[in-house]
Design a protein around this nucleic acid. Structure first.
Lengths: 159, 159
DNA sequence: CGTTTAGTTCGGTGAGTTCCGAACTAATTA
DNA sequence: TAATTAGTTCGGAACTCACCGAACTAAACG
């Protein structure tokens, strides 16, 4: 049984974080946390059940969701009917790519707001001045930061 | 009555965005969107009711929530019993500051994961190599970007 | 063949959320 | 003083969500 109290505590904490940042149900977030904390060897379905203390059906549903989202993958061992689940090796890259989508959405929203204000509230728009522009510049820098980080990670993982 | 079909559509769209990014109920998110699209003049309670087509009680509850979160503020006009609601002038700065909190949390989480893996899974940790380090560098750059943007906005708004 | 293993699928259930109407309050006006 | 205005508060209806148990399937084993 591979679960120290320390790991259990970390699973709880990282789970809470993943619930927010990846918009996952509590159980899915905890399963994902378990995967991240065991980078290579993989866990069986039963191990996940016993660590999370959740039911078979819940583990099945949430695990399939994580597989579908490509946050988790599995491998098999010959002469062993079980599947071994682990975090997708590209999980950090995938995380960054989803951040990139969010940033692009936010840039579009900011553009729509400034366009609207410029044409419908020109006099008020003048008063707000440079703030939306500075915000957009911030978003563009962040987009750049994300893109270059994704490239760096890809270079390492594809070699 | 200050509500073109274009504005209504934008309110819907930005509302959906705010629901996710600010974790607000649909109605609260729409009210906040209305405030952002009218930077200065302010809307009365009744205007908000008629734009959102929501009930008095719902508008009251969600508006008070937004006031409490300092996303919205109000002013009054002498000889007029109504309150005029508008987006908090510091809303972009406040938004960025909440991002900053999230980034700091994420940095802590990444540190905990790498520490855990370094001590409990040293051999696997070796194989993942530089990826978590690159991720942390990305987060630190983003933190820096946020901090300098907040400073810029403060300089403009405090003068 | 019957049984075990490794899951999946279905029909709830309990908790939480979002919104509403109705009754209320507190200040203002006629 | 009665009525209006500008909200607030309360109780509940309708809905969603996360999870569960029980019954199921499909492959492998004895």
């Amino acid at each position: 049984m591979s679960c120290s109290p320390e790991k259990r505590k970390l699973v709880e904490e990282i789970g809470l974080h993943f619930e927010k940042t990846h918009q996952l149900a509590p159980l899915a977030a905890r399963i994902y946390a378990i995967m991240i904390l065991s980078p290579k060897e993989g866990h069986t379905f039963d191990e996940i059940m016993s660590i999370t203390e959740a039911s078979k059906s819940s583990v099945s549903t949430q695990l399939n969701l994580l597989l579908q989202l490509k946050k988790v993958e599995y491998f098999t061992k010959s002469g062993d009917r079980k599947r071994y689940f682990r975090g997708n090796k590209m999980y950090l890259k995938n995380t960054l790519e989803s951040y990139l989508v969010n940033i692009s959405e936010e840039i579009k929203i900011v553009e729509k707001i400034t366009t609207f204000n410029a044409s419908y509230n020109p006099e008020k728009y003048e008063k707000i001045g440079k703030v939306p522009m500075i915000f957009k510049e911030y978003l563009l820098r962040q987009e750049e930061n994300l893109k270059s980080t994704i490239t760096k990670i890809s270079e390492i993982q594809n070699k």
